[in-house]
Amino acid sequence: MIAERLEKATPENWMFPPAEGWTFDQVKDLELPFDWELVDGVVVVRGRAVPWHNKVRSSLERHLEDCRTEPYAVLAEQCVLVDEYNPPVPDVVVFEKQGFDLLDAEYVPVEKAVLLIEVVSPGSRQDDRVRKPAMYAAAGVQYYWRVERGDDGLPEVHEFWLPVGKRAYIPAPLHPVHRGKLETDVPFPVTIDLATLVEL
């Protein structure tokens, strides 16, 4: 009976994971009346994103889609499977699309991800500044952007690179923090007037 009950996470049992934790397959169909994420096999409630966050996320996705080059694709709010107990949902994912079946895929395999972007919200500061970049770097994702809200209300992009053979990010050598304008050549050339990300 217990083994049966724990085959899948449900609205009744999600808060009682098995000893080893829930897996992606066990929670992928779980519907709850709030935003959540699987962290180390535990269903964790996420704070709702504010309009500033959502506007910046959708604008970044659009800009990156407009300037992306082959062999890359861009998606927003897409699960990236780091391991079966950790399928985070970055705000924007840039990944290599060879062999990726858009019709059947349930997630982006972490080995295909080349850039992950998190837009910081009041409820995600620790995750976006510490836990997620450490996890992404350990998984070998080459680039990470953390987008913060500046004192003037405009986005600031903190750009990080993963050195070859390392498992921790370093600030991008030439422009670790982009204010006013984002200019970078990796993973492909991107130039964005950051003020346009919050224009309605």
Rank of each mutant, 00 (worst) to 15 (best):
K8S: 13
G123D: 15
E77D: 15
S58K: 04
L194M: 08
A9T: 03
E84C: 08
G150P: 11
V27Y: 04
M135D: 10
L182C: 12
A137N: 04
V190F: 04
E118T: 01
A195S: 11
K181Q: 15
Q26R: 14
M15C: 13
R146V: 06
F160I: 04
D104Y: 13
E96W: 05
P122Y: 03
N13I: 13
Y143A: 08
R146M: 11
D151P: 09
E4K: 14
F95Y: 10
G47L: 05
W22P: 14
L182Y: 08
R5S: 15
W161Q: 09
V164G: 11
T69L: 12
D29F: 07
A19Y: 07
L116A: 06
R48L: 02
E106F: 03
P33I: 09
L197P: 05
L102P: 08
G150K: 07
D101Q: 01
V177R: 10
A168T: 07
C79T: 14
P90K: 07
L102K: 13
P33H: 08
V120M: 00
V177M: 10
V80P: 02
P90G: 07
A195H: 02
V50R: 14
Y136K: 06
W161M: 03
W14A: 14
P109T: 08
P71R: 09
G123K: 10
A137K: 06
V45R: 15
W145L: 05
E31K: 15
A172G: 08
A73I: 00
L154W: 01
A172V: 07
T184K: 13
K166Q: 15
A105S: 14
N86T: 04
E20W: 00
A9P: 04
S124C: 12
F16I: 13
Y85N: 14
E61S: 12
W145P: 07
D151C: 09
V141S: 12
N13W: 10
G99F: 00
E199W: 00
P187T: 06
P71T: 11
Q126T: 12
F24M: 13
D40G: 14
K112N: 14
E183F: 00
A9G: 02
A113V: 09
V120D: 00
W14P: 07
Y169L: 12
R167Y: 06
D66Q: 15
R179N: 04
V89T: 10
H178M: 07
E61K: 13
A76C: 10
V82Y: 02
E7D: 12
R57H: 08
E37A: 12
H53V: 01
M15K: 15
